[in-house]
Computed example of a mutant assay.
Amino acid sequence: MLELAGLFTAAFLSATLLPGSSELAFVGLLATGRVDLATALAVATVGNTLGSCANWAVGRFLAAWRDHPRFPVKPDRFDRYCDWYRRYGLWSLLLSWTPVIGDPLTVIAGVFRTPLWLFTPIVAFAKLARYLAVAGVVRLAV
């Protein structure tokens, strides 16, 4: 289904350091009524979680170039997120769904070599919770 591919793409890209909002695609798809809630939740959550895994890989494998002008996170912010992650650790990934801080936190998790098997379920839980909240708001509004 083309709509689900679009939702997956929007969810994936919005979870990376690229700007974007998958919530609009999610709500729009639900509004059409062509896809049930469970399917939309699954596609959006998987896409968004995989986008965060891409951020993890950026942190894991590209952090050596953190001072390069084209590195996706500025050095002062990079240091701030590192301090945050040192302070709150793995559980700070429950904020991976939030705008502005969520995506860089997933990069920093890669820098700190957080095992992917720990990273993925925590991030997936956070992403699913966000989409459930959005779906709840949509249901209340309709």
Rank of each mutant, 00 (worst) to 15 (best):
R34I: 07
R77V: 06
T16F: 02
T106H: 02
A129L: 14
L132D: 05
V138A: 14
T39R: 07
C53E: 13
V35Q: 03
W117K: 12
A10R: 05
T106K: 01
A64T: 11
F26E: 06
G51K: 04
S52C: 15
V46L: 10
G28N: 00
A40V: 01
V27Y: 07
G102L: 11
S52G: 15
R87N: 12
A141I: 11
R77M: 09
H68R: 11
A135K: 01
A63V: 08
S92N: 05
R70D: 12
L13A: 12
T49N: 11
A15S: 15
I108S: 05
I108M: 09
F78N: 10
V142M: 14
V142F: 11
T16E: 05
A129D: 06
R70I: 11
V107A: 10
L13I: 12
F125D: 01
A126L: 07
L105W: 05
E3G: 15
F125P: 00
L93S: 11
F8V: 02
V134M: 07
Y131N: 10
K74L: 08
L132I: 08
G20Y: 00
A135I: 07
R34A: 12
G51H: 01
L90R: 12
V73Q: 03
E23T: 06
K127Q: 15
T49P: 13
T32I: 10
V123I: 09
F12R: 08
T49Q: 12
V107F: 10
W84H: 08
V111Y: 14
V142E: 14
A141W: 13
A31Q: 13
L2I: 11
V35E: 02
A129I: 07
V46S: 00
L118W: 15
V142C: 10
A25L: 04
R87A: 13
G28D: 03
L93H: 06
L93G: 08
G28C: 00
K74D: 12
W65H: 14
G59A: 04
V134A: 06
T16R: 04
T9M: 07
D36G: 08
A15C: 09
R77W: 11
V100C: 03
